[in-house]
Amino acid sequence: MASGVLKRLIPALALSAAALTVQAGESITLASTTSTENSGLFGYILPIFEKASGIQVNVVALGTGQALDVGKRGDADALLVHDRAKEESFVAEGYGAYRKDVMYNDFVIVGPAADPAGVAGAKTADEAFAKIADSGSTFASRADRSGTHAAELRFWKAVGKDPEGKPWYKASGSGMGATLNMAAGVGAYTLSDRGSWANFKNRQDLKILFQGDPQLYNPYGVILINPAKHPHVKKAAAERFIDWITSDAGHQAIADFKLNGEQLFFPLKAK
């Protein structure tokens, strides 16, 4: 009896396994950041590209550092990340074939509405970070080698503070969303990209306290994984995506993406 059931079950499952792996047409793997995925940008622009090209883009959303690692190992065809210094050394070391500018958005400093550090009165982002450190206000850090984490570390360095190990500095070691959940939970300050913040629903007492400083500029670049290093990279399909997202059509799609009526990403003309 049981074996009879099993005999009928096995072909059914084998079939379902086959159905799992079938993908219509060509596809590429794009390792990107949580900021682009969580904001809903990909959900908006990728169907436009897929319709035009017939190429499906499989997005794996990670932090920038992790996405670069995945690229180094050859587990993606292209990267869309935001840490220009690391992106350039990634290409220089031969892991990437080339890098192109795609778009930018900006970081915002969010924190408890009461603003114990007085960040809202700061004139520059540097000053805002210095105020947080000087007042010893709780700060939730990504601490995950993401692009946002790298930006945050640049600010601490610029104002000569070393928050590592301080009781007010909470290293969450997790994504933007988890870090925002933490900041909301304990009433901490944190640095967020505007897209993740705009799409974040569990704000509780958090609000944007500082924004608009040119220091908070956050550019994104696209990189083709070097086919010379990883021969299995789907070069043709990945290049079609790169060409599209840096073209006028791609830029238009990026500019058209709005959340609650607000444009979150701004196309960058290639130099």
Partner: peptide, 9 residues
């Protein structure tokens, strides 16, 4: 996990 990270609890 994704919805949690978007704060859509």
């Amino acid at each position: 996990a994704l919805e949690t990270s978007k704060g859509d609890l």
